[in-house]
Design a protein around this nucleic acid. Sequence first.
DNA 1: AAGTAAGCGAGACGGTACGTCGGGTCTTTGT
DNA 2: ACAAAGACCCGACGTACCGTCTCGCTTACTT
Lengths: 193, 193, 193, 193
Amino acid sequence: MTRTPHRRGADRTEAIMRTTLELGQEIGYANLSMEAVAARAGASKQTLYRRWSSKGALLLDSLLSLNEPGLDYPYTGDLAADLRAQIYAAVDLLAGPPYGALFQALVGEAQHDRRVAVALNERFIAPQADKTVARLRAARDQGQLSPDFDLDLAMAILSGPLYFRLLITQEPLTHAYIDRVLDVLFAGMTPRP
Amino acid sequence: MTRTPHRRGADRTEAIMRTTLELGQEIGYANLSMEAVAARAGASKQTLYRRWSSKGALLLDSLLSLNEPGLDYPYTGDLAADLRAQIYAAVDLLAGPPYGALFQALVGEAQHDRRVAVALNERFIAPQADKTVARLRAARDQGQLSPDFDLDLAMAILSGPLYFRLLITQEPLTHAYIDRVLDVLFAGMTPRP
Amino acid sequence: MTRTPHRRGADRTEAIMRTTLELGQEIGYANLSMEAVAARAGASKQTLYRRWSSKGALLLDSLLSLNEPGLDYPYTGDLAADLRAQIYAAVDLLAGPPYGALFQALVGEAQHDRRVAVALNERFIAPQADKTVARLRAARDQGQLSPDFDLDLAMAILSGPLYFRLLITQEPLTHAYIDRVLDVLFAGMTPRP
Amino acid sequence: MTRTPHRRGADRTEAIMRTTLELGQEIGYANLSMEAVAARAGASKQTLYRRWSSKGALLLDSLLSLNEPGLDYPYTGDLAADLRAQIYAAVDLLAGPPYGALFQALVGEAQHDRRVAVALNERFIAPQADKTVARLRAARDQGQLSPDFDLDLAMAILSGPLYFRLLITQEPLTHAYIDRVLDVLFAGMTPRP
DNA sequence: AAGTAAGCGAGACGGTACGTCGGGTCTTTGT
DNA sequence: ACAAAGACCCGACGTACCGTCTCGCTTACTT
């Protein structure tokens, strides 16, 4: 019997993450198990546990591997357009098919597992928030926003309703909805005449 | 050994829910099991499953039982004050000690279990949202808000940042933060002069 | 799908022991696993571990269940004939097919697991030895043996070579071999004229 | 970090066998693993498997290395004295501390692994038996034993009770016990007057 | 002296089984 | 009639070792 030679390191890591996403889509995160991922990936459980301490950590890595380059902001000078473009991209990747349900489950897992919560924050939430805040700060520096504007809060008001839809009411996150949020935000943000 | 005589119906239900909250606080939702609740409550697993289909359903009932009267809005005529009072009350009950962590876990569970998500929506999220929208509508009808104001979106912009803090950044939800959100909301909501 | 109703207690115990012997014969004790026994018996591993703390304990019970009535001595008055008959019976049951290999493995296991050793001694070795000694004592009391004869040692000299064959040289234990041992024993035991 | 330079061949073999005996004494054969021996000996598992096919083979070699010169019989002309001396030596080496437990475990392993059984027989049991038979044959040739005496059986009657004690009843093997066995053997063996 | 091949430590890898936990279902027993 | 108790099957957990493998480094021969 011919045996597949063992692949090492990154090879295996990548194959396992790919399998995680595949299987996660097929049977859902709740039914996903380390056991099943290992079996499907042709890997041993040890190999999984060598790299990830839990199902949540594995899914986190798997999902973030989809976005290696990061979701960076365009900079056209038009604040509203730039925000919109970036949020469209982020939402399209993580809230819609095929990975939306898994990202949602990941945030759910973060409520049960502090390590997942911390990792999710450090590796995705905070970087994204920082980019948003940086874009807003640039706009404020150019006088497009009131000098006393609360950048962090603006970021939260932008993100909050989106996560609210994703996690709480669990309705689809359309571009139209994003536009509505942006509209209100700018109505309150732009300097009063 | 003295044996506890069997209690029936509502008696048992209440005792089990009380035990769920107790044990949930002690060991956390992730470590909570139907098995453990049954043992601590002196009930059989059958009795639990007779009433609740899952751990999530049990926790949902247990948490909602804390708020039998519901979180109703005061109506003083001052919109900002009324919103603030109601949100303070809701956040104090569900985001702080001792039940905040369990409520957070419940929302997490809703990401893994559609039935929990639906029940949570129907029995808590939607009713609260309806109350908020109703209060805003009353204000709009009285000319305190622009006639074309988007009530649902306002509710989302109010709730979103709070859930964002609770679930995503997992920082404490202070009254000061609530005030900041309300301030921005009103800056954008009130009719421009 | 129709489900087999769960059988309880003794039912399960018996089925599992039967499976242990079957599977043990097929694949050998070294390859036998709690996992495989459970699967073949249609039982859960918990059920196995509820009753037996280890593979050795399970095999011990399984083998001893073959000999519920015990291997009792006939008493014809002829010492040599009685010993021979009883040893034939014991050896035929435990040293030949189909269970010889498993009994041999059980004694092997007793070298690795003190609890197995103790249980094996208490439940099989010692009772058998006692019966042999009792039969010898009766003969001595009737003057068929020297009054100062060492009964325990005689038992050991009778049993030792048999176990030596079974465990050390691992040659088949024939009736002829038993006869040779008995002959020498009696040559040394019977009162000199 | 300073690295130990690689030693070769016999060097490594000897170090590994020494470690096997050490570790075997400390944690017992049942808990011993190739993994642990390799780690303790600072060897790789590959190196172990290059030399020994299994844990049993390794222990066999390790134990036999303790007895490089072999257990040879003295020849004083006094059969009983010679047998006694040799058996004392063998029993003291292999049934008492510090290696008795490991030798016992090795015989146990021989029940599970045919290759170990064969190797144990060829390299220890048979040579010892041959020496005993040779000594007995010399005595018979000199008329100290009946001409029709069964030498092989005598050897078994000598060894059997000792292994019976070691493996079955697992009581300590004292010189006094050896003497008792020898006494009975000679009572039955020596030519009748 | 340089080059090469074998031996080695290290440890990743696919597996199998371990012994445990909890899920949800079912039977038994007692009140 | 209903509840506690807990046996039961099942699936997964996270761990331990197995025996095989790949990787560089070290050592000792070969040229």
